[in-house]
Design a protein around this nucleic acid. Sequence first.
DNA 1: AAATCGGATGGCCGTTTGGCCAAGTTACCA
DNA 2: TGGTAACTTGGCCAAACGGCCATCCGATTT
Lengths: 105, 105
Amino acid sequence: MDAKTQAKFEARARIIKAMAHPTRLFFVDELSRGERCVCELTDMVGLDMSTVSKHLAVLKEAGIVQDEKRGSQVYYTLRCPCVMNFFNCVETIMRTKVKSQMELV
Amino acid sequence: MDAKTQAKFEARARIIKAMAHPTRLFFVDELSRGERCVCELTDMVGLDMSTVSKHLAVLKEAGIVQDEKRGSQVYYTLRCPCVMNFFNCVETIMRTKVKSQMELV
DNA sequence: AAATCGGATGGCCGTTTGGCCAAGTTACCA
DNA sequence: TGGTAACTTGGCCAAACGGCCATCCGATTT
């Protein structure tokens, strides 16, 4: 594998990696229904706000969300709704796996 | 967030996490063009075979690939071609990001 | 001006990840 | 039957991750 190919897959992996966490996945799902500020998301997941802020920074770094400061709050929005396609695919994989496990019984 | 919702996102994250690595992403891409045995994949990436084997185990655990032993070789195949949809979406995110970065110049 | 609220950042710390090496297993070949 | 090729597994170790706390910053309130 040449350096160029490797760089390509590293770039892809960075984006996928940004979603590879239950909390961040929840945020993406939640943001697909509209903008949310940090304190709203913090209330939903029950983690420390600093932790939530860092998770959002990861999603932002990856280009998945964007933020907008209004007053003293920061609102996050999905930058690319196509992200939701991930879920469809993931669900398919999950169902396929369950199905083949059932066949073994 | 109740326990059930959390479990749902953890299950999704496990699958996405399995793809959140450049080498494993390369394998998925490669397997989308047909079955490959471990030694073929090992040659392509230039890592230790034990490392490759572990990466494949991660993909298998997640239900993304399946293996079949034939003779002394083990062949891996994609279990769910829809995985390739990930790439389309990832590319879109990358392009969107680059585009908005260019607007800043 | 002081206190408070919403967020971001730095530090700490236990856990996970990803690489290699070494060793074990199974199939094929001489 | 002994040897080698193809994998897998366990161990080890440095690096990355994900949580909390403490702290800092900027906007709002009092």
